[in-house]
């Protein structure tokens, strides 16, 4: 276990109880009526889901940056999140979202479709450039179809529902979403964790990695599966929550020895912490309607990204 894993593990353990108590109404377990029910049925599943979603996105971002050897890479580049979003939008468009299981199911099918398309285009050769381009095209196609669905929405209600859903949130989530996401994200994080050694080898470039016996096409498959499961399941239960996969590995990297393998587990923990804290903050903010978590994280993420670019520009100049 490295220093960063320990640090984010401890912070997460401290943040979880605070997050359970935090909200528009702060909970006092001793005096608040129905405190046990509120905790067990509302706040605990929401907090657990925040950690699952954040953990999956953080690990996916760390693996993605390691694979592309680029600190600006984001798991969204693979087109899996837009694919999952498209699936969910289709469910909303046809009004299937009234049934609680159908929306996540459609989103998972969308993520699976994006993964299959990626694998069909780029999976056999395993080239990084081809793969990135294929991911961008899948993302662009899914984005265009989503925009088409919004513009041709059957009624104003469906349209606003779609737009609202696309700005991810954890409002009104229950244990059902936890049971959908937990096994998929856990499996995805384990697959990504297993790519660590190969990602370390890639530090010296693809030919060297192959000469060290790394099977680069197997690595690509593991990544598609791992990122597909983590990101696909996250979008299925929470909608699009951007920037976590980009920011978290950056925050964590200076605390590690910078080997990609050492970044995956602490990034999962830090992602869980970030989404948990961000979701608690949007609950506490005194606004008329709760700020959507996806919007809040983008509001935080975009300036962060700009600072990063400015710092990099200084470094390059």
């Amino acid at each position: 276990m490295n220093r960063a894993t320990l640090m984010f593990g401890v912070l997460l353990a401290l943040a979880l109880p605070l997050s359970l108590l935090a909200g528009r109404v702060w909970l006092d377990p001793a005096s608040t009526p129905n405190a046990t029910i509120i905790l067990a049925e509302l706040r605990l599943p929401r907090a657990v889901l925040a950690m699952i979603v954040g953990g999956g996105l953080g690990a996916a971002g760390a693996a993605m940056q390691g694979y592309l050897r680029n600190p600006l890479a984001d798991p969204g580049l693979f087109g899996i999140a837009p694919g999952a979003a498209l699936g969910a939008v289709v469910a909303l468009w046809f009004g299937y979202a009234a049934s609680a299981w159908l929306l996540p199911l459609f989103a998972l099918v969308g993520a699976g479709g994006a993964m299959a398309l990626l694998a069909a285009i780029a999976g056999r050769t395993g080239g990084i450039a081809l793969f990135t381009l294929a991911g961008l095209m899948v993302a662009s196609l899914a984005g265009a179809l989503t925009a088409l669905a919004i513009s041709m929405a059957p009624n104003a209600f469906a349209m606003s529902e779609i737009v609202l859903w696309l700005n991810g949130a954890l409002t009104d989530r229950s244990w059902r979403e936890v049971w959908i996401a937990a096994p998929l994200v856990t499996l995805g994080v384990v697959l990504l964790w297993r790519t660590g050694r190969s990602l370390d080898a890639l530090t010296l470039g693809e030919p060297v990695a192959r000469s060290l016996g790394i099977d680069t096409s197997k690595l690509l498959w593991l990544l598609i599966l791992g990122i597909g499961l983590t990101v696909g399941a996250s979008v299925a239960v929470a909608g699009i929550i951007g920037f976590v996969g980009l920011i978290v590995p950056h925050l964590v990297r200076p605390l590690t020895d910078r080997r990609p393998s050492q970044l995956i587990v602490p990034s999962a923990l830090a992602g869980a912490l970030l989404v948990l804290v961000a979701d608690s903050v949007v609950r506490v903010l005194p606004l008329v309607t709760e700020l959507r978590l996806g919007i809040a994280l983008s509001l935080l993420g975009a300036p962060f990204f700009l600072c990063l670019l400015i710092r990099m520009r200084r470094g390059l100049a």
Binding site: D200, P207, D257
Partner: peptide, 30 residues
């Protein structure tokens, strides 16, 4: 193969800001 053949490409590439020891240790991967 990977244990028996060591390959060094022409263009040096070190993607992350890792330590010298970390780089040398990558040789043990096979």
């Amino acid at each position: 193969r990977a244990k028996r053949l060591g390959y060094l490409p022409q263009a040096p590439e070190i993607a992350w800001d890792v330590t010298v020891r970390s780089v040398v240790e990558l040789g043990r991967i096979p």
